[in-house]
Nucleic acid binder design. Structure first.
Lengths: 216, 216
DNA sequence: TAGATTGTTAATCGATTAACAATC
DNA sequence: TAGATTGTTAATCGATTAACAATC
């Protein structure tokens, strides 16, 4: 049993949300126990890897039985910090910002949206999910006063670093960044990037792979 | 020199879009040559890794000189297939679908949107970027008739597999999937997932990591 | 030519898989 | 008890880093 989560590699951690999702599905299907072998068949990881992964965080299984679905789901949820609530703001209230504001699992898992910010005067006063869109000049004070934990950057890439700096100054804990740049922040701020164009380019690569191969 | 791209590991391939992006930045700054050491400092990979990565696809550099920025940018663009155009449709014309439709790098790199589909009658006839929103019942015929290469799924998770099946039947090449499920398709269809909630959960994990550590 | 930097091989590191004793 | 399946160690595989000869 290993409770020093800092030892666990990012490779393992990035698989946790997928376990979480499949366990949720199993719960909805009223399946109460599952072996690493069955889970392997569903999820596509080897049974060995599943047992290794889960054991990084504790002995959740039982020999001869397998894993209790609900218990494992809850444990992984806790490891991911999904039992807590987080205060968030979105900067950039265009299509993407609005999409995030309305994203089901965002709402469902305790990510509480307290403010939306933009530079476009036309958007000021508009409401998304009962949240007023505010001028980005108010961002720093708002984040400080409301002790916002997570800032979500949905702006064009040109201003993303500037927004990140403001968030950092206002003592943000984490940034979820959708702008296609690598923003720089001090060590005490956590950044998670969603680089949509990188994903699209990989798709483009994969579509061409066979042709590259033929050329050989 | 290795031109059998099928040999190149996904780890390398997933780094290519980042090289591409940084080289673009360098071009805009009118920097014409760069060594692996300088690029390393910018991008955060080791110089050794950069040289290894690039050498999977050919000897783009020159001893004693480094890499020609523009040439390397163009070569990586070609490897990623960004010199081509792709025909696409978006299924699900909500916030996310609209955000993708208007996403700058989507438009910029030759991903041509030909159709938008939804089930919501209120959206029918609406236009996004001059594209009519159509009923999803028309999807299969439209994809077949217009030889659509890429289908972009921006629907709720419940219908994503059904949409993927329709796309597959209509001879789609690739699917860019934003629904939080792992869709199943035959081998000849390429799927690239963007699982937003997984990314959010990782951020949540990282925000809590220090606390886990303290408990030890 | 001398200096710089690549391309490439070899060494190291880390992650995945296999195997099996422990145990429910 | 017998069968099943975990937890965990050891073996394998793959990816990253280091080193340096080749060469511009």
């Amino acid at each position: 049993m290993n409770r020093d989560y800092a030892d666990v590699s990012m490779a393992v951690i990035r698989r946790l949300p997928k376990y979480h999702r499949y366990l949720k599905d199993l719960m909805e299907k009223e399946i109460y126990r599952i072996s690493s072998r069955e889970l392997s068949r569903l999820i596509g990881f080897t049974a060995s890897q599943i047992r290794q992964d889960l054991n990084c965080f504790g002995g959740f299984g039982q020999q001869g039985y397998g894993y209790n679905v609900e218990e494992l789901y809850n444990e992984i949820g806790k490891i991911l910090g999904l039992h807590k609530n987080y205060t968030t703001v979105i900067i950039g209230a265009g299509n993407l910002g609005q999409a995030i504001a309305n994203y089901p699992s965002f709402i469902k898992y305790g990510f509480q949206l307290l403010g939306l910010f933009d530079v476009n005067p036309k958007l000021m006063g508009m409401k998304i999910r009962d949240i007023n869109i505010m001028d980005v000049d108010l961002l720093e004070d708002f984040v400080r006063e409301n002790k916002i934990e997570i800032g979500i950057i949905c702006t064009p890439k040109e201003v993303a670093q500037n927004i990140a700096d403001k968030l950092t100054k206002a003592n943000i804990n984490g940034i979820w960044n959708f702008a296609p740049v690598d923003i720089k922040v001090p060590n005490n701020v956590t950044v998670e990037n969603v680089h949509l164009s990188e994903s699209l380019f990989i798709l483009s690569y994969l579509l061409n792979e066979k042709e590259h191969f033929k050329k050989k």
